[in-house]
Simulated scan of single mutants.
Amino acid sequence: MTINERFAEILKTKNISVKEASVLIRKSEVYVRKLMRAGESFGIEPVLLILNSIEDINPDWLLREKGSMFRSQYNTEEPAPITSERLLSIIESQQRTIENLSRK
């Protein structure tokens, strides 16, 4: 599942419409629809917007599909804050993996 598909799954599971999501992350409906399309680039800004706006989302699940979708299901302790540097590092690592796989 791609990060775009996981974002769409969040909206579906939490019963959040595209319009409601656009209000939550303070972006246009067109922007939200673009994030939901497979194959679209998904940079650090939308990740931070999603994690800061829908606070019970497990960042590991959103970024790497590890664990469960919701924080309460994987950790009862308060999670460490996610920094933009950490997210950028994860995204860069994923990009290198994609590039390596596409060369094969």
Rank of each mutant, 00 (worst) to 15 (best):
66 K>H: 08
45 E>T: 11
60 D>Y: 08
65 E>D: 15
60 D>L: 12
76 T>F: 09
33 R>G: 00
43 G>V: 06
92 E>S: 14
77 E>P: 00
88 L>G: 15
81 P>F: 10
45 E>D: 12
78 E>D: 06
50 I>K: 03
43 G>P: 02
35 L>P: 01
60 D>R: 07
92 E>K: 15
68 S>F: 05
71 R>H: 03
31 Y>L: 04
29 E>Q: 00
64 R>Y: 12
85 E>T: 14
53 S>Q: 08
54 I>D: 07
33 R>N: 03
93 S>M: 12
41 S>V: 01
42 F>N: 05
68 S>R: 10
72 S>V: 12
42 F>K: 05
82 I>K: 13
69 M>A: 07
82 I>N: 10
67 G>F: 03
87 L>V: 15
57 I>L: 04
59 P>G: 07
72 S>R: 15
58 N>D: 10
48 L>C: 14
31 Y>K: 02
78 E>Q: 11
70 F>R: 11
60 D>T: 00
85 E>Q: 14
82 I>G: 06
51 L>S: 06
80 A>H: 10
92 E>A: 12
53 S>T: 06
69 M>N: 06
31 Y>V: 01
75 N>Y: 08
89 S>A: 14
81 P>R: 12
47 V>P: 02
90 I>N: 09
87 L>Q: 01
54 I>T: 08
31 Y>A: 02
30 V>C: 01
59 P>H: 11
54 I>L: 13
69 M>Y: 06
67 G>Y: 02
80 A>S: 14
71 R>V: 15
71 R>G: 00
82 I>V: 15
45 E>Q: 07
41 S>F: 03
29 E>L: 01
77 E>A: 11
67 G>C: 02
81 P>Q: 11
78 E>F: 05
88 L>D: 14
90 I>A: 08
40 E>T: 10
